[in-house]
Design a protein around this nucleic acid. Structure first.
Length: 452
RNA sequence: GCGGGUGUAAUUUAGUGGUAGAAUUCCAGCCUUCCAAGCUGACAGUGUGGGUUCGAUUCCCAUCACCCGCUCCA
C-alpha cells in the first residue's frame, strides 16, 4: 500500500457505499462520517468478530450496554470534568497556546478559584508575558471542554447539564458490582462493551481517524492487585492476535509504550497501525489500577470492594483496560486491504478483505440474463445462510471486478451447463481457485470456507 | 485553533467575464456462453452566501468542507 493515497481510499469508500461525508448535502459537518450499506456491514462484522473473541470465546466474560447519558457525578469521579476542561489562551504574536492558570501560577501569582474573565484581567494588569515570545498580547480565555454537554428537561440552567460520554469505560465501572452480583463472578472477570463515545475535539481529521463521534470496543478486566502486571502483558498480545485474525498484516502493526501517562494509569501501551499518514493508535491497553473504582466508591459512598472467599480478604479490584477504536480499525482494514493491480494496461482496484469481515460473503452471478430466474432463486436460498449479493448487470467479467472491488471472497456463477448438470462455478478471490460444485453442496462448501 | 493548498456531474478531470466539454461509473435497450468487450440512448456539475459587473463558474470578500504541516490528544 506504499503509494496508495488517502484520496483513493476516500474515493473508493464513497463510490462503493462504505463511507459518506456526514451531512453532505448541507456542505458537510466537520469530522462526522456516515457509514453506507457496505460500511455498516463491514463495521458490524468487525464488531461481531470482536464480540466473538472477547465475549463468546472467553470464560468469565460479560457484555454490557450502558447508557450514553450518565449522572454528571460519574464524570466528576472519573476526573473528566476536571482534566477535560482547560482555560486556554493564545498568544496573538507567536500563536502559541497556553493554559491561563499555568501562566498565572508561573508568574508567582495565585489564580485559584478565579473565573476566566478575572484571570484574563490578572494576566493583563500584571503584564504576564508569553513564555515563548515574551510579548503580552493574548486572545481572550476560552474554555476548552472536550466533553459534549447537553441539557435534560426544558430549561438550560446549570443543574440540568448532562454529558455525552467521552469514553465508555465508566459504564463498566459503575456497573461493576451489578455484573459481579448478577453473574456471580469471581475475580478475575471481564466486562466488554461496544458503543459510541463523543469528544468535542478541534482537530484535523485524517478521514475517519479522528472524529467527534466514534465507536469503541472496550474490555475491562477486574483482578486482584499483583495479578495486574501479568494481565496487562497478556492483553497487549491478545490485541495483536485479534488484529491478525481479522486480516491486518503484522508488518503494519507495532507496539508503542507510553511514557506520559493519563491521570488514572500506571502503564499504557498502544498498538499502532501504519496508515498512509503515518502510525496511528488503533488499540490501547491501560493498567488503570484501583483508581476508578476507588473514586466511584468515594463519590457514590457505595462499596466497590470484593470479598475473596478463599482468603476472606476485602479489597478494591485493579482494572486492566483494553480499548479498540472501531472506526480506526475499520480504516486500518480498508487501508491494508486496498490494492491496485495492472492488467493489460488497466488499473484494477481490489479490496483484499479477510472473509470474516467482508460485507458480502458471496455474489451469485447468472452467466446470462436468460439464466436469471434460477440464479435468483439460489441467491435467495443462500441469503438465509449469509450475506450475499446478486448481480446480473453487464458482462460477467465486469461483475467479477465489481465484487473484487468490495472484497467479496466468493463468486458463484450459474451457467448454461448448470441447467443440465446441476453444478455452479465457485471462485475464491484470494486464491483464484475455481471449482464446479453441485448446487446441493454449495452451502456446505461455503460454510466450510467461511469457517477458516 | 494556527499556517499552506484545493473545491466544476457519483468519480477523475478540461475550460471560459457572455449557452460548461469529456472519460469512467450508474441506468435503459441491443449484443454478449466465465474475469472491467462493443453499439445506441438517457441521467447528471461550477460547495454555500455576499460583492463588483449589463452579465460571475471565472475577479474580490466571507463562510463551509476536505487535504498537507503544526498544535492538541485519555
Amino acid at each position: 500500500m506504499n503509494k496508495v493515497s488517502f484520496e483513493q481510499i476516500v474515493s473508493l469508500c464513497k463510490i462503493r457505499g462504505f463511507i459518506f461525508q456526514g451531512s453532505e448535502i448541507y456542505g458537510g459537518l466537520a469530522n462526522t462520517w456516515d457509514y453506507g450499506p457496505l460500511g455498516s456491514r463491514l463495521k458490524n462484522n468487525l464488531k461481531d468478530a470482536w464480540r466473538k473473541k472477547f465475549i463468546q470465546e472467553r470464560s468469565n466474560s460479560y457484555e454490557l450496554d450502558s447508557a450514553i447519558l450518565m449522572h454528571p457525578r460519574v464524570w466528576e469521579a472519573s476526573g473528566h470534568v476536571e482534566s477535560f476542561s482547560d482555560p486556554l489562551i493564545d498568544c496573538k504574536k507567536c500563536k502559541i497556546r497556553s493554559r491561563a492558570d499555568n501562566l498565572i501560577e508561573n508568574a508567582g501569582l495565585s489564580g485559584n478559584s478565579l473565573g476566566n474573565d478575572e484571570m484574563f484581567e490578572l494576566i493583563k494588569s500584571n503584564g504576564i508575558k508569553c513564555p515563548s515570545c515574551g510579548e503580552c498580547d493574548f486572545t481572550e480565555i476560552r474554555e476548552f471542554n472536550l466533553m459534549f454537554e447537553t441539557y435534560r428537561g426544558t430549561t438550560n440552567d446549570k443543574k440540568s447539564i448532562v454529558y455525552l460520554r467521552p469514553e465508555n469505560a465508566q459504564g463498566e465501572y459503575i456497573n461493576f458490582a451489578n455484573v459481579q452480583r448478577s453473574m456471580r463472578c469471581k475475580l478475575p472477570f471481564g466486562i466488554g462493551q461496544i458503543g459510541k463515545a463523543f469528544r468535542n475535539e478541534i482537530t484535523p481529521g485524517n478521514f475517519t481517524f479522528r472524529t467527534i463521534e466514534f465507536e469503541q470496543m472496550e474490555y475491562q478486566t477486574f483482578c486482584k492487585k499483583g495479578f495486574d502486571t501479568e494481565l496487562y502483558d497478556y492483553f497487549k498480545k491478545y490485541g495483536m492476535n485479534f488484529f491478525e485474525e481479522i486480516g491486518i498484516p503484522k508488518t503494519l502493526l507495532r507496539f508503542h509504550d507510553h511514557e506520559k501517562l493519563a491521570h488514572y494509569a500506571k502503564a499504557a501501551c498502544d498498538i499502532e497501525f501504519l496508515f498512509p499518514f503515518g502510525w496511528g493508535e488503533i488499540n490501547g491497553t491501560h493498567n488503570r489500577t484501583d483508581y476508578d473504582l476507588s473514586r466511584h466508591q468515594q463519590y457514590s459512598k457505595k462499596s466497590m470492594e470484593y470479598l475473596d472467599s478463599e482468603t476472606n480478604e476485602k479489597f478494591i479490584p485493579y482494572i486492566i483496560e483494553s480499548t479498540y477504536g472501531v472506526d480506526r480499525i475499520f480504516l486500518a482494514l480498508i487501508c491494508s486491504a486496498y490494492a491496485e493491480e495492472e492488467v493489460n494496461g488497466d488499473t484494477r482496484k481490489i479490496l483484499k478483505l479477510n472473509h470474516k469481515i467482508a460485507p458480502y460473503k458471496a455474489a451469485i452471478l447468472p452467466l446470462s440474463k436468460n439464466l436469471s430466474s434460477k440464479a435468483y432463486e439460489i441467491y435467495k436460498d443462500l441469503s438465509r445462510m449469509c450475506m450475499c449479493d446478486y448481480d446480473e448487470a453487464g458482462s460477467i467479467g465486469k461483475r467479477y471486478r465489481r465484487q473484487d472491488e468490495i472484497g467479496t471472497p466468493l463468486c458463484v456463477t450459474y451457467d448454461f451447463d448448470s441447467e443440465t448438470d446441476g453444478k455452479m462455478t465457485i471462485r475464491q478471490r484470494d486464491s483464484m481457485i475455481q471449482e464446479r460444485i453441485d448446487i446441493s453442496e454449495l452451502k456446505n462448501y461455503m460454510s466450510n470456507y467461511l469457517k477458516r
